[in-house]
Write a protein that binds this DNA or RNA. Structure first.
Length: 656
DNA sequence: TCACGGAATATTTTT
DNA sequence: TATTCCGTGA
């Protein structure tokens, strides 16, 4: 044990040997607990480690855990950090308040709901729900919407969300990003108004509202703001490069007079502009909090030198960045490769055979990942992996809770929880034979008039054909003591009712029925229905449909398939980046706008910096894109002209 | 009023 | 390619 004259380890109070486990910059970041602090953390520089030790240090120093707030990008991230801190120190760390901005907003808003004029029991709309609502309002507006090809609900939802997160008007969003929709601007603004008032009247909050209303609460009620800010004396924010203006504003108002706020991030890894994130946020932090101390973490502990050589080459193409030089002391490693394949399936076959080869060399499957730009890019590969019986998990893309059959079951539960939920009523009614939008509306209105909750369904009358279908739903809702059942029993009842519908609706119903069993397993962990519904909206299982919770015995040794966005913060021994084809990555849609192209570049940087030892890019050599009406045949421009000494180019056909 | 089939349309990433 | 939209026939 070295005994240096650090103010740290000479202090007997500290059990953890910070000096031994952290480098100098990391140690400084952990030590600087008072006042505003900005940590610029390059890829693989031990950012999570630093945050974890900082939490432990604060607690060990006698700070009450409940007065520490750790805001992260996903709830999983904060859970893992607190778990690690707990292992490092003790169980006090479990009491630290942690979560996403959205989940934090949820907690605070439920507490102070009355001040904002809505019920504490408000329901949260996830993306599918808001789109459904927008779809209904879009139809209501009929006359205007019918004329031309009016934007779809999905597009409308994107426009609304973008406006909120960038804190600009609908008008500006349309002018900037959807110029072709200008003729419909008035109707779009109209629908947006309806959407907003509908949500307010029915006590619905969508994801964006959780931020907006939190911001308003802090701004409009100084006494409440003071109460909240004084209860969180130390605030830490991870992934600050991916926060947007609202979030920065919330932080500003949340920080008490002591200004004990620390943010960590890397401007080169900002990849969420589509939801309003602005990588310049991170450099504006010192302006927001004058006197900010800035610490850079530049030593990379993840990748071998040849990989860093390449990733440095990638990021140096960025027009606008705040430069920092990453270095590593990890020696050895092989040169990253760029492999061309004849077509998509050739690409898949190459990846599969390379993975098999790596396995023979003793690399475990869970140390390998295949990354891609968009969820559907892996479809062909998934087929090949199944054929070769290579187990994998897929992260990102379509989610478990967003799949139609899960949403169907959830809608029944939501009606039971909140009989005023028009969106869910519509959803469950339309599942019934002979009931279309008109009958659904009639039933809904009738139930509302009875004002006796979902039980009011009993006295609803319809024409014979539709009435017969409705009988079964009536029977379900009139089960004696339905709302007193445990959540698991309630789920069982709903699923039992739903199974025949599932069988009629989908030809792949056995697979989907398994998902429902998994849903039931999740429900068993909850005792409160509305808490369950909130959690499913806010923190859904991140894995995709299908093999989500596969109870395979090899479950912990599986290959990872992931979108690059979902791979943020993770690392693997070997990383494949497929579809490194110009026109796909960067996406052809990003080519016309400088800032979009820059974001694609950062995305490529994030992908490449996930690798520890092996990094392999692949692309199909000739792909005809019907939308573009052209052939794509060049590798991604981000890695195209890099010399062989840094990126080795080969053809898959000579390697398989 | 509903269901069905053909036509049109579209990016992608997530809380 | 897949979803969503719109018109038509029952």
């Amino acid at each position: 044990m070295q005994k240096k004259s650090s103010p740290f380890n000479s202090d007997r109070r500290f059990r953890i040997q910070y000096e031994k486990h952290l480098n100098l910059s990391q140690l400084q970041a952990v030590k600087s607990t008072e006042g505003p602090l900005l940590v610029i953390a390059g890829a693989g520089s031990g950012k999570t480690r630093t945050l974890t030790y900082r939490v432990a240090h604060l607690v060990e120093n006698g700070v009450s855990p409940a007065s520490i707030l750790l805001l992260t990008f996903t709830r999983k991230a904060s859970q893992q950090m607190l778990l690690r801190a707990t292992k490092l120190l003790d169980r006090r760390c479990e009491k630290v308040a942690g979560g996403t901005f959205h989940s934090f907003g949820n907690i605070i808003l439920r507490k102070y709901a009355s001040a904002m004029g809505f019920e504490p029991g408000f329901a949260i709309l996830d993306r599918v729900d808001s789109e459904a609502l927008i779809g209904i309002l879009r139809k209501d507006l009929g006359a205007v919407a019918k004329q031309r090809s009016f934007p779809r609900k999905h597009t409308l939802a994107n426009i609304f969300s973008r406006a909120v997160n960038k804190m600009i008007s609908i008008e500006d969003v349309v002018y900037d990003n959807y110029p072709h929709l200008e003729p419909d601007l008035e109707a779009i603004i109209d629908i947006h108004q309806c959407y907003r008032s509908y949500k307010r009247e029915h006590h619905f909050l969508d994801f964006d509202d959780l931020l907006v209303y939190l911001q308003q609460l802090l701004k409009l009620y100084p006494d409440i703001r003071n109460r909240i800010s004084s209860s969180y004396r130390y605030i830490m924010v991870d992934e600050y490069q991916d926060t947007n203006k609202i979030q920065a504003d919330i932080l500003y108002n949340l920080t008490g007079a002591n200004e004990n706020i620390m943010v960590v991030g890397d401007d080169s890894q900002s990849i969420y502009a589509f939801r309003g994130a602005n990588f310049r946020n991170i450099m504006q932090f010192p302006k927001m909090f004058p006197g900010t101390r800035i610490i850079s973490l530049e030593e990379n502990y993840r990748s071998v030198q040849p990989i860093l050589d390449l990733t440095n080459k990638i990021i140096e193409q960025a027009k606008e960045k705040y430069s920092k030089t990453l270095f590593t002391r990890i020696t050895g490693g092989s040169t990253p490769q760029l492999i061309d394949a004849v077509d998509e399936n050739g690409q898949s076959q190459f990846v599969v055979s390379k993975i098999q080869q790596l396995c023979r060399q003793g690399i475990a499957l869970d140390k390998i990942a295949v990354l891609f730009r968009a969820g559907y890019h892996s479809f062909d590969l998934e087929i090949e992996l199944n054929r070769e019986q290579i187990p994998f998990v897929k992260v990102g893309g379509f989610k478990f809770v967003e799949s139609a059959h899960i949403k169907d079951v959830m809608a029944h539960l939501r009606v039971i929880s909140n009989p005023n939920d028009r969106i869910s009523w519509y959803r469950i009614l339309l599942l019934i034979e002979k009931i279309g939008p008109v009958s659904a509306q009639r039933v809904y209105e009738s139930v509302q008039q009875k004002a006796s909750g979902y039980i009011g369904l009993a006295s609803v009358k319809l024409k014979s054909g539709a009435a017969r279908g409705l009988e079964k739903l009536k029977k379900l809702f009139l089960t004696p003591g339905l709302h007193q059942l445990s959540l698991a029993k309630l789920g069982e009842a709903v699923i039992k009712y739903y199974l025949p519908i599932l069988k009629a609706k989908y030809d792949d119903h056995p697979k989907r029925a398994k998902d429902l069993e998994q849903l039931l397993a999740i429900m068993e962990r909850y005792s409160d229905l509305s808490l369950f519904l909130t959690d499913m909206a806010l923190e859904p299982p991140n894995t995709s449909i299908g093999d989500t919770f596969a109870t395979d015995s090899r479950a912990d040794n599986r290959l990872t398939l992931s979108t690059i966005h979902s791979a943020k913060g993770l690392e693997w021994h070997t990383v494949f980046i497929i579809w490194a084809l110009d026109g796909r990555f960067p996406s052809a849609h990003a080519l016309s706008k400088e800032e979009d192209l820059e974001e694609e570049l950062r995305l490529m940087y994030v992908a490449a910096t996930r690798a520890r030892e092996n990094l392999i890019f692949t692309y199909p050599i000739q792909v005809y894109d019907r939308m573009l009406g052209m052939v794509l045949d060049r590798p991604s421009r981000f890695i195209d002209m890099i010399p062989q000494s840094i990126l080795e180019q080969q053809s898959a056909q000579y390697l398989i």
